[in-house]
Structures are given as C-alpha cells and as structure tokens.
Nucleic acid binder design. Structure first.
Length: 136
DNA sequence: GCCAACGTTGGC
DNA sequence: GCCAACGTTGGC
C-alpha cells in the first residue's frame, strides 16, 4: 500500500471544487516521474491533497478510485490520468512551514523535489501530516 | 551522448 | 514579480 501527495494550484483546481465534483480525473501531468507515479497508484490508496502557490498547505485526503488510463485531454499515449475522490477535509490544514519544521518529514519527497506534482510518501509521513492536522 | 539554452514550477 | 531548481530540447 502506497501513500501519495498530489499538488494543485488552488486557482486551477481547488479542494473545494474537488469536493463539489466528488470525483475527478487527475489530468495535466506532463512529467515522466509524476506519470510513473500515476501508473503505480492502485484503487484504495490514499493521497494528500496539497495546494501550491498561494496556499502552500495540505488541505484534504483523497482516494484513488480508478487506476491509470489514457489522458482524455491529449492524444499522446505518454500521458495518463487516474480517478480520485475526496475522502476527508483536514480539520486544520497543514502548512508547508509545519512540514519543513517537523524532523520526521525531513525526507519527504515534496521538499526534496518541490516541482514534482505527484509524489510518493511513506506511511509515516502520511500519518505525521494527519497528526499535525489534529494537533492545532 | 553531452551540454547549453530554454521553459516551467513554485517558494519567497 | 523575481529567481532558483530542475526537466526538456536541440545542436554538435
């Protein structure tokens, strides 16, 4: 079982839009590493949903409901999407600062590779972020 | 196959 | 709005 962190710019596709939609395909990935991560995602695996740019915080939890298939927004067979649905809105969002300042999250992929939009994280990192969300 | 140039992303 | 980091492209 893998855990993931997916990033979106809130003005492009925000958590609240996602909650309204209930289900969406995660498109627009044009990076091979991120694409490879999409291909590894399995139904039932959990993702943290992170708002980049203005927000810079983890705002919710999503679940993979359909494994990768051809990106419907392009003919190029290199690119795939997965279907995700929202599971939970975090009581308190977890900010990038909190993530950076927690020693357990020193090695989280999103800090080492800030530009990657689909990142594999460990169960510990996943749980730690949920814990941070409850603590404040 | 290397590397410079360029584009994109995201934090500040 | 700037800039650093990084990925991609294209010329050699």
């Amino acid at each position: 079982m893998n855990y993931w962190l997916i990033k979106s710019e809130p003005f492009k596709y925000s958590w609240s839009t996602f909650v309204k939609d209930q289900i969406t395909f995660w498109d627009g990935v044009r990076n091979y590493q991120a694409r490879n991560n999409l291909r590894e995602m399995r139904v039932g695996e959990m993702c943290l949903f992170y708002h980049s740019n203005e927000d810079k915080q983890v705002v919710g939890i999503a679940e993979i409901v359909k494994e990768f298939y051809q990106d419907p927004t392009t003919e190029d067979p290199n690119w795939v999407v997965v279907d995700v649905k929202p599971v939970n809105t975090l009581l308190k969002p977890v900010t990038l600062n909190q993530i950076k300042s927690d020693p357990r999250l020193n090695n989280i992929g999103m800090i080492k590779q800030p530009r990657l939009s689909v990142i594999k994280i460990t169960q510990l990192e996943f749980n730690t972020i949920l814990e941070l969300s409850n603590e404040n």
